Simulated scan of single mutants.
Amino acid sequence: MSAVAAVGAFTDEQLELRKTVKALLAKHADPGAVRRATESENGYDAALWDLLCQQVGVAALAIPEEFGGIGASAVESHLVLEELGRTLAPTPMLGSVVLAAQSILASGDTDACERLLPGIAEGTSVAALCWTDESGSWDTTGAGVTAAASGAGFELTGSSHFVLDGSYADVLVVAATVDGAVALFEVDPAQDAVSRRRVPTMDTTRTLAVVEFAGATARLLTADGANALERVREIACVALSAEQVGAAAQSLELTVEYTKSRVQFGRPIGSFQALKHRMADLYFQVETARSASYGAVRSLADGAPSTGADAAVAKVYCSEALQAVAADSIQLHGGIAITWEHDAQMYFKRAHGSAQLFGQPRTYLKQMQSAAGLPA
């Protein structure tokens, strides 16, 4: 049974959306364009992002119509993210549209939604969620920033790490502790009390930043930040799994094509039975990861009670699948794959970088073991 059949076939409109995004990326996000984008000031191709937003409306898909969006389900965004993962095209999709926009929605602050979400939906504004401390735990009960009441608002002190798109975002949503509890705040990054810097990353296609606050003025979005972040983390894990499936599929395709052209002992290496078996195993991992990812997004779109568990499964399985496929791709390509000029190393680095986002796989495994009453 195919991954799509396992969770219900996509609609014609959803398939057309995937086709449109794939065609646009094929034209504007080839490997050379992706490399040039990573070397730009902000680490992404602003012209490509504008095309995706204005011609396709990718940033508006998961934002409700009342806040300037299209109001589609999570499935549509999932298909877009899968194609973005396939090309490794760096865009604000995961950081701004998934993390930040969904945290604003999860806060339940209607005023903030009305002010901030239309710009994000249009792609004219980029938002970033400042969540983790330097340990990178993505814990919903703590943060690296503290908030103190000041007049009619709050002042924030501390630093957030691993902030997707944080170095150039127009709006910051900040998780900060207030009297031991996590709350979410809106912060204008233009104020002098906010400093931010883009940091070097192993995966150059993912822009991360450190954002520091020195008494920055903030507006409270919700005092119940823990529950909002729990919801955002589920959405983020499902979205990330779509990227990982796309990247794993493309990494495998590149490997298969190489083994058809690389000749050894007078014949293509892909004709050797041992390598056929190995690539068949990789294909199995890609397709089972796709099933886990599609199952998770279907649960998310339907609001199923199993959404949290399905998101965790997708996070763990898709992270491990991409790492396995990318590692075998390096080996099957031989020495050329570890050179900077070859694309295989980019997928390898994306695999290991993505596995750390939103919590390491082993963290989710321990949670699932605990929930099932199994010994650690």
Rank of each mutant, 00 (worst) to 15 (best):
P200V: 10
T201Y: 04
D203P: 00
R206W: 05
T207C: 09
T207L: 10
A209R: 11
V211H: 12
F213Y: 13
F213I: 12
A214P: 13
G215H: 13
T217S: 13
T217Q: 06
T217E: 13
A218Y: 01
A218T: 08
R219N: 06
L220M: 09
T222F: 02
T222H: 04
A223C: 00
A226H: 13
A226Q: 15
N227H: 09
N227F: 00
A228W: 08
V232D: 06
R233V: 10
R233A: 06
E234P: 01
I235K: 04
A236L: 05
V238D: 02
L240V: 00
E243I: 07
V245H: 09
G246Q: 05
A247F: 05
A249Q: 13
Q250H: 14
S251R: 03
S251L: 04
E253V: 12
T259A: 07
T259C: 11
K260S: 12
V263E: 12
Q264D: 12
Q264G: 10
Q264R: 14
F265Y: 09
F265M: 11
F265D: 10
G266P: 04
P268Q: 07
G270H: 08
S271Y: 07
S271E: 12
F272I: 05
Q273N: 10
Q273F: 15
K276A: 03
K276S: 03
R278M: 07
R278E: 13
D281W: 00
D281K: 14
L282K: 09
Q285A: 10
Q285T: 02
E287I: 00
E287N: 15
E287T: 14
V297C: 10
R298P: 01
